[in-house]
Write a protein that binds this DNA or RNA. Structure first.
Lengths: 229, 229
DNA sequence: GCGTGCTGGTGTACGCCGTACACCTTCCGA
DNA sequence: TCGGAAGGTGTACGGCGTACACCAGCACGC
C-alpha cells in the first residue's frame, strides 16, 4: 500500500515544486499560496517542501525565475529603441500571464541570478545603442519596474463590489473631487464598452513607455553626460 | 487600583491609535507592526483596537492618511512644471520620513478620501497648466507612484550582510554580468564616499521625474490629442 | 552479503498572526 | 433611577511558517 503510493507519484524536485507553485498562484491567487496548501496539491506533507526550497522566500524567488524565464531574448537587427520596446512588451506579456508576479516582485530584496542575467542583457541593449555607461546607469533607474514589464499602478483593480450604486454618493464625489470626476466621466463617455476601471492598461503602459524611451533617445542624441542644466 | 489605571492613561481614540501605529512602524519597521504589538505599546489588550479601527487593513489605510497629510499644499504662482515638481518632492520627503509607507501603499486596493483629495488637487495642477482632460488622464498613469513621491526601485536596499567579500565571487560576477559590473565599478569609482548601494537616490528620482515632466511639457506644447503618429 | 550513510518524506510541536464573540465596566441622558 | 451605548477585557479558533527528531529506501565499499 505504502509502496503503491510512493511509486505512483513522481518524486518531488525543486522544479516540480516551483511549477506547481506557479500553477497554484495562477489558478487561485497568490494569497492562497501557502506551504501547507502547495504541499497538499503535490500530495505531500508540508515539511517535504523544505527539502527542495530553503523557505518560502526562496520559493517565491524561484517562482519569479520561472516567469522571467518566459521573457523572449532580445531581437537583433533593429535600433535600440525598437529592440528595447519589444523586449519590454514581451516581459509585460509574461507578467500578464502571471498576475501575482508583479506584486511578488515588489517584495524582493535581492535579485536572483536569473533576474540579474535579464538585467544585464537589458543594460547591454542600451550600451549597444550608444548610451554611455553613466547615462545607462540613470536609464536603468528611470525605467524602474517598467524594465520588467509593469508599472505599479497605484490602487490596481478594485475587488468586485456588489454594493448598489448610490447616486447621492456620486454627487458628493463630483463635488469633492471635481477633477477626478472630469476625467472619469470623459473616459466613460469615450469608451462606452468599458466595464472595469475604464482604462486601457496596455495603451497606458505603452504611452508612458514611449514617453520615457523618447526622452532617453533625446538625451542620448544630445550627448548627455552629467547634470545638463 | 483599577480606577487608577483607567484614569492614568488617556482614553484610546482612533487618532491616538493611528499615531502610535505610525510611530511604531517608523521605529521598529512595518514587519514588527502587529495588532498585538501595537496594543502593547498603548498599554491595552489587542481587541481594544478593534473599537477604533475595523481591522488591520483599515489601520494601514489610516496610517497612510497620516503620511499623506504631511504633504505640503501646492505652491501658487509658478508654471505647472515647477509647481508639480515641488509638490512631488514634498511628497517624497514625507515618504522618506516613513520608509514603510511606500511598501504599504503598494498593497492598497482602494484610495481613501484623503488620498483621493491629494490626487484630485494634483490633477488640478495639470489642468491649470493647460493640459487637456484626456492628456491629463494619461499623464496620471504615466506618473504612477511617482505622483506620491516614490519610484518603486526593484530590489531596494539589501539587508546588511556581514558575509566576507569573496574575490572569486566578484570575478564570477564580472564574467557573468559584464554590463552590470561595468556600471557598478564606474559608480563606485566616481563616488568613493559611498557605502550603501552606491546610488544617489535623490538624484535618480529627480532625473527620471524631470525626464517625464519634460516629455509631458513637450506633448502639451505640441497640442497632443490622441495617438500622435 | 552487509553494515553505513545519504537523500527525501513524515509527524509533532511551537510561537506567531488576525480577529470572532461573549463579557463586564463606566457613564450619560431620559 | 434605570437603560443602554461606548469602550476595554479574556478566551478561543484557525491559519501561518518552520525547527527538530524521526524513519524508509537506496547506493556503495568492504
Amino acid at each position: 500500500m505504502r509502496q503503491v503510493d510512493t511509486l505512483r507519484r513522481a518524486p518531488l524536485t525543486r522544479d516540480r515544486v516551483l511549477r506547481a507553485a506557479v500553477d497554484l498562484a495562477d489558478g487561485t491567487g497568490i494569497d492562497a499560496l501557502s506551504m501547507r496548501n502547495l504541499a497538499q496539491t503535490l500530495g505531500v506533507v508540508p515539511m517535504a517542501l523544505y527539502k527542495h526550497v530553503a523557505n518560502k522566500e526562496e520559493l517565491l524567488d524561484g517562482m519569479l525565475d520561472v516567469v522571467v524565464g518566459e521573457i523572449d531574448p532580445p531581437v537583433a537587427g533593429t535600433d535600440w529603441q525598437a529592440a528595447v520596446r519589444e523586449r519590454i512588451l514581451s516581459a509585460r506579456r509574461a507578467l500578464l500571464r502571471h498576475p501575482w508576479a508583479s506584486r511578488v516582485l515588489e517584495t524582493r530584496t535581492a535579485a536572483t541570478p536569473v533576474v540579474l542575467q535579464y538585467m544585464d542583457s537589458m543594460i547591454g541593449m542600451f550600451r549597444a545603442g550608444g548610451f554611455s555607461v553613466d547615462l545607462t546607469h540613470h536609464v536603468m533607474h528611470a525605467m524602474g519596474s517598467r524594465i520588467l514589464g509593469f508599472s505599479q499602478e497605484l490602487f490596481g483593480t478594485p475587488p468586485p463590489s456588489d454594493a448598489p450604486i448610490d447616486p447621492e454618493l456620486g454627487r458628493q464625489m463630483a463635488e469633492r473631487y471635481p477633477y477626478i470626476t472630469e476625467i472619469t466621466t470623459k473616459v466613460a463617455h469615450d469608451d462606452a464598452s468599458v466595464v472595469g476601471s475604464g482604462c486601457d492598461d496596455q495603451f497606458e503602459f505603452e504611452f508612458s513607455l514611449d514617453l520615457i524611451l523618447d526622452g532617453l533617445e533625446r538625451l542620448r542624441a544630445r550627448g548627455w553626460t552629467s547634470r545638463p542644466d
